[in-house]
Design a protein around this nucleic acid. Structure first.
Lengths: 313, 313
DNA sequence: TAAAAATACTCCATAGGTATTTTAT
DNA sequence: ATAAAATACCTATGGAGTATTTTTA
């Protein structure tokens, strides 16, 4: 069976063209070197050296084999190296889920900063809703997610990365757009555009951004009359722009379609909505650790209050 | 000292995730296998498996190491194989990378013609993305690649083999499909299907076909709203067919899924996208030379203008 | 005859085997 | 109770050492 040893020995001899000297650099005696080379040639069924007692030179096959042997050794070294660096979270892959509304600011900053610090980590980004992210975290399809609370899952750890107010999104030219502030009660009789109001699955109930919107409406004394449904923030705002209804959005979404959508403050509303990073409590991955470190670094600068780790509840 | 044996054993365990069964396939007993794996982990200083008495799974480092170990073993086999072939006088193997969109025409012609001229050279074809090809060229795992510019690498030589226009790919029945030509601006508000919009690695940024698509969109005054991501042209077009979005494709891809995807000209667009052969400037092998000669012969007939050698970037 | 590789042999390090224990399910 | 990995211990293959011979420049 051919081993890396044979490659090492062969390369040493091929480079010096001298068994004794090669043996010396390898730190072994000459006879075993001769034996190993012979064994290698036997295994290959190929003569690698033309040798007399006073001259050693590579055969044609030897020349070909030298190149490949060097490459193999290099690759083996790289394998070892990568494994070590992977243990430090410096190479690898991280699959990240994120809600569609949130790419614009904090997340972009995190991704950017992480890329600079860890250029050898492959980042795969997916735009998916909060309840889907919870599922994918459990299946391992994503390792972190940027989600909007609330979620209800004790296996998942959350850290707040952003807090922002809610805005009312109205089609440009809508009568309410004349006001500077819109009371929530004024929206009671409007058609709404939201995500699936009850979630697509029963277990999605009460999760994510629109469950917060729902609770704001309830506080205002009504249940929104949902006329259109979409799952991406982008699409929702497109539908608002098309005049199909009104909705509430997080403030960071208000740079979308500014020319066709009017964004107004919500009167008498102090509630802030949050974006959090979510990950499995049980997850123990160096890459993830490094990513979370970056998240905390970035959010420390952005959030006034420190982002406190908080268990999912 | 780490030997190929360790790689073989590790791969066997990683593939079965079962020490006893792996030992069986390796033709050894279980305890020595456990020992060798442990020794490997000690040498690396890295845990490769999470193991309990009833469950074995790879750690993150293990996943990385598996990939590299497989590559190393493949390379070692190739070294042996090449030496033997060389001894029989059947010198030569050429490993070729190619982007998934490009097989259809020029490349097929090149391969065909080369096979006829050099029946003794073994051709190994791999379908991989442009940035990956650049990496594999450097490691020597492929000797030539068919890629889509732009790339940014002074060590790599490029020669254009094909120029073709861009087409808009729309789901059959999409309103825009009624037009004969589609202006790029009409796609601003559509969901897009592309490759990873941010690239998975920072170094991938600005490479390959979709970086050209991106720049076309930018010229049209928008950044595409990417709703779905895939890495093979085939998959991308499948997703378009499924109605998940629109995209731009090189004209040669327009024979895929003609019944479910509508291909339309881009209005006011004169930009041509290119396919090039790429190889290391420093590479000098007779096999590669002959291959490039064939490429030039074939493209001379296809391209109106002569393909001019051009340094990378 | 001198320098260097090949042979012959010896030794011991370690890969691999057998028997057994441990542990999680 | 059972399946599977770890541990302990033993065996023996073969890698490496020493001494010597062979070869040809």
């Amino acid at each position: 069976m051919i081993e890396l040893r044979h490659f090492r020995y062969f390369v040493a001899v091929a480079e010096t063209l001298h068994f004794s000297r090669a043996a010396e650099t390898l730190g072994i005696a000459q006879p075993p070197l001769s034996q190993q080379i012979k064994k290698l040639e036997d295994e290959l069924g190929v003569q690698l050296f033309h040798r007399s007692h006073h001259k050693v030179e590579l055969t044609e096959s030897g020349v070909i084999f030298l190149e490949q042997a060097r490459r193999t050794l290099r690759m083996a070294e790289q394998a070892v190296d990568d494994a070590r660096r992977a243990a430090e979270g410096r190479v690898g892959r991280l699959t990240i889920g994120m809600i569609s509304s949130a790419y614009e600011d904090v997340i972009a900053a995190v991704i950017l900063s992480f890329r600079v610090q860890f250029p050898n980590i492959e980042l795969v980004l997916q735009e998916i809703t909060t309840p889907q992210q919870i599922k994918l975290l459990h299946t391992g399809e994503i390792q972190v997610g940027f989600i909007r609370p609330p979620i209800h899952d004790p296996a998942i750890a959350l850290e707040v990365v952003k807090r922002e107010p809610l805005l009312v999104a109205l089609p440009m030219g809508h009568p309410l757009a004349r006001r500077k502030q819109v009371p929530i009660t004024a929206l009671a009789s409007e058609p709404w555009v939201t995500t699936e109001p009850w979630g697509t699955l029963p277990s999605d109930l009460g999760m994510g951004f629109y469950s917060q919107v729902l609770s704001v409406c309830r506080e205002g004394g009504f249940t929104p009359n949902v006329s259109q449904v979409a799952s991406h923030m982008h699409t929702i705002i497109n539908l608002v722009a098309a005049g199909l209804g009104v909705t509430l959005v997080p403030a960071s979404a208000s740079n979308l379609h500014r020319n066709r959508v009017a964004y107004r403050k919500l009167a008498n509303q102090t509630r802030l909505v949050e974006v959090s990073v979510a990950y499995l409590n049980s997850a123990q991955s160096p890459v993830l650790e490094n990513f979370l470190k970056t998240v905390r670094d970035v959010t420390r600068k952005t959030l006034q209050k420190d982002a406190r780790p908080a268990a999912g509840r």
